[in-house]
Structures are given as structure tokens and as C-alpha cells.
Simulated scan of single mutants.
Amino acid sequence: MVTYRIEKTSKGWALFRARRFRPVAETETKEELIKVAAQILAGSKVAVRVHNANGTFQELRL
């Protein structure tokens, strides 16, 4: 299972694959990014770690 993370960046919010620094997708808001991530990752067995704006761990979505 591949793990992704959603984190705050200087440009807004970004979806990263585990241990990678280049974002898979970027949006201005967290809500938009979650919708985009759901479309990109649909049908795949992945885990998504969602972080708060301050960097603390918020939740893990499967």
C-alpha cells in the first residue's frame, strides 16, 4: 500500500507521495485538495495522512 500526505505549503496545500518532495497535486485550499486527491487516487489501495496547517498530524484516511 502506498502512502500519501497532505500538507500546507507556501503556495497553499499539496499532495505528496511518501518520501517524495515533489507534489503530485497543489491547490489553494485544503478542501479542494482533498477532492482532487480523491479523484487522482480513486481505485487505488492507498493511505492518506492529512496534516493541520501547523504540521501536526490530523488523521489517516484509507
Rank of each mutant, 00 (worst) to 15 (best):
residue 12 G to M: 07
residue 47 A to M: 10
residue 25 A to M: 09
residue 26 E to I: 14
residue 56 T to A: 15
residue 51 H to K: 12
residue 38 A to H: 14
residue 49 R to Q: 13
residue 32 E to H: 08
residue 30 K to Q: 13
residue 24 V to P: 04
residue 3 T to W: 00
residue 2 V to P: 12
residue 15 L to H: 01
residue 2 V to R: 14
residue 32 E to G: 02
residue 5 R to C: 13
residue 62 L to A: 12
residue 18 A to C: 10
residue 32 E to Q: 14
residue 52 N to M: 08
residue 21 F to H: 12
residue 22 R to H: 14
residue 14 A to H: 00
residue 54 N to Y: 11
residue 22 R to Y: 10
residue 59 E to P: 00
residue 24 V to H: 04
residue 62 L to I: 11
residue 24 V to T: 12
residue 1 M to A: 15
residue 43 G to A: 12
residue 32 E to F: 09
residue 34 I to H: 01
residue 16 F to Y: 12
residue 27 T to S: 15
residue 59 E to V: 07
residue 46 V to R: 01
residue 40 I to P: 03
residue 56 T to F: 08
residue 50 V to R: 02
residue 53 A to L: 00
residue 50 V to C: 02
residue 51 H to L: 10
residue 24 V to Y: 01
residue 33 L to D: 07
residue 55 G to W: 10
residue 18 A to E: 15
residue 53 A to R: 11
residue 18 A to K: 14
residue 44 S to K: 14
residue 30 K to M: 07
residue 33 L to M: 00
residue 32 E to K: 09
residue 16 F to L: 05
residue 20 R to Q: 10
residue 48 V to Y: 02
residue 31 E to H: 01
residue 30 K to V: 02
residue 12 G to A: 01
residue 23 P to D: 08
residue 4 Y to S: 06
residue 40 I to L: 15
residue 2 V to Q: 08
residue 41 L to F: 05
residue 27 T to D: 11
residue 52 N to V: 03
residue 2 V to L: 08
residue 42 A to N: 12
residue 31 E to D: 14
residue 2 V to W: 03
residue 22 R to F: 14
residue 36 V to N: 09
